[in-house]
């Protein structure tokens, strides 16, 4: 009776649940979009699903923001820092879905990229990023700092790899239109990874250093 009267204390848990759903949806958009460019999936088959998932991501972002405002208004002792972190991280999670959409748009335009010699490396990178997106969700829930550091190191390696490949393609004058596709793909995949990394760095750095792991003095971690 008493428990019923008081209700479940789900304030932040509900927000975290919605955030996890955003990450899950972002990964889904990323995978499905990459498959249209690299795996030959017919864009028409996934278009509606991607559109709906992207809309859900946007709705979740807005819902989380509203819930955060309510949480901070209602609670006299609201976890202000945590709320502000979420306010920033939902943007990263939303951007992952956005880049996935950009990849899908490219997949619609460049149906002939499937089987390109450059696609082998891109598929490997894409699979790696997709696995890391799944890992990110679990990591965010467990808040393990040790695993977060390993994640960030791994993410840095992928970012470097994407940068190197873009530089190589830009310098290679012998190539035609397809390098543009590959360069953009590397660019988008890199951004997806970078946003995922931003989310994970929130486990490691204080609020003011969100997105700036390299600049962190380490004292406050």
């Amino acid at each position: 009776m008493l428990e019923w009267l008081l209700g479940d204390d789900v304030g932040m848990a509900r927000i975290q649940q919605h955030f996890s759903q955003m990450i899950e949806d972002g990964r889904h958009v990323f995978d499905a979009a990459c498959n249209t460019v690299l795996g030959g999936t017919d864009p028409g088959v996934v278009r509606e699903d991607l559109h709906k998932t992207d809309q859900r991501i946007n709705r979740l972002e807005q819902q989380i923001r509203r819930e955060l405002v309510v949480h901070m208004t209602v609670r006299e002792k609201a976890e202000i820092g945590t709320c502000l972190k979420f306010m920033s991280l939902v943007k990263d999670a939303e951007r992952i879905g956005d880049y996935g959409k950009n990849i899908f748009d490219m997949g619609q335009e460049c149906r002939d990229f499937v089987g390109d010699p450059m696609s082998a490396d891109l598929i490997a990178v894409k699979d790696h990023v997709s696995r890391m997106l799944a890992k990110m969700r679990n990591l965010f829930e467990s808040q393990s700092t040790e695993q977060a550091r390993r994640f960030v190191d791994e993410a840095h390696a992928i970012l470097r790899h994407c940068d190197e490949r873009v530089s190589e393609l830009v310098r290679d004058a012998s190539l035609s239109r397809r390098p543009v596709v590959a360069a953009l793909l590397y660019r988008y995949v890199k951004r997806v990874m970078a946003h995922a990394m931003n989310i994970v760095t929130s486990i490691l750095v204080p609020l003011d250093k969100l997105d700036y792991l390299d600049e962190d003095d380490g004292d406050r971690v």
Binding site: L6, G7, E76
Partner: peptide, 17 residues
């Protein structure tokens, strides 16, 4: 009452937005 029912109030506010 505010402390006791904060979870209910938060849920109600979220519901009614």
């Amino acid at each position: 009452m505010r402390v006791l029912l904060v979870a209910r109030i938060e849920a109600a506010m979220n519901e009614v937005l």
